[in-house]
């Protein structure tokens, strides 16, 4: 065996028309022309690979059968995507509604804000509930009664 003899891997690559690893295709061809041993190995490899049985493409009947099966599957498949999309949109809307109206959740209008700086437009909140006015009126009533008591004492 010559030191520059081709390896089995190189012979396989050359058989398939691929570049060998450590030698150019031209140098490999030169070597094969002068080395009986490598030529013999190459011919044996080629004969072995030729004898590997081929597996032909199937005939068109198979194509028709596959096409029919796939079409059947596609026809059976419900057109769900619009429904799924609508359901997802509904779920998101429902979740947002629940988040807004959930008991105990701080209303969006009661966010703590820093005191308005001078010159800054005061924060205008939502209309206050009428309970504040009633409280004021009750206090005014108490004041009136207190004044009445003082007047009586002074008599």
């Amino acid at each position: 065996m010559k030191p520059d003899c081709l390896s089995e891997r190189d012979l396989i690559l050359l058989h398939y028309g691929e570049a060998p690893d450590r030698i150019t295709p031209e140098a490999a061809a030169d070597h094969l022309a002068s080395c009986d041993r490598c030529r013999s190995k190459r011919d044996r490899l080629a004969a072995d690979l030729r004898r590997i049985p081929a597996m032909a493409d199937p005939d068109p009947v198979v194509a028709t059968r596959i096409a029919a099966r796939v079409s059947e599957r596609l026809a059976q498949r419900p057109r769900r995507w619009p429904l799924v999309g609508a359901a997802a949109a509904g779920a998101v809307a429902l979740a947002m509604a629940v988040a807004v109206w959930l008991p105990g959740a701080p209303p969006a209008t009661t966010v703590n804000r820093p005191p308005a700086a001078a010159g800054e437009a005061p924060f205008v909140g939502p209309p206050q509930p009428p309970t504040l006015d009633l409280e004021l009126l009750e206090r005014l009533d108490l004041l009136e009664e207190f004044e009445t008591l003082r007047a009586l004492e002074g008599v």
Binding site: M55, A56, D57, P58, D59, P60, V62, A63, T64, I66, A67, V70, S71
Partner: peptide, 13 residues
């Protein structure tokens, strides 16, 4: 279906 019939032999092969 025509597309499938065209490619199926190759794909199955």
């Amino acid at each position: 279906e025509a597309l499938m019939r065209q490619h199926a032999p190759r794909v199955v092969g």
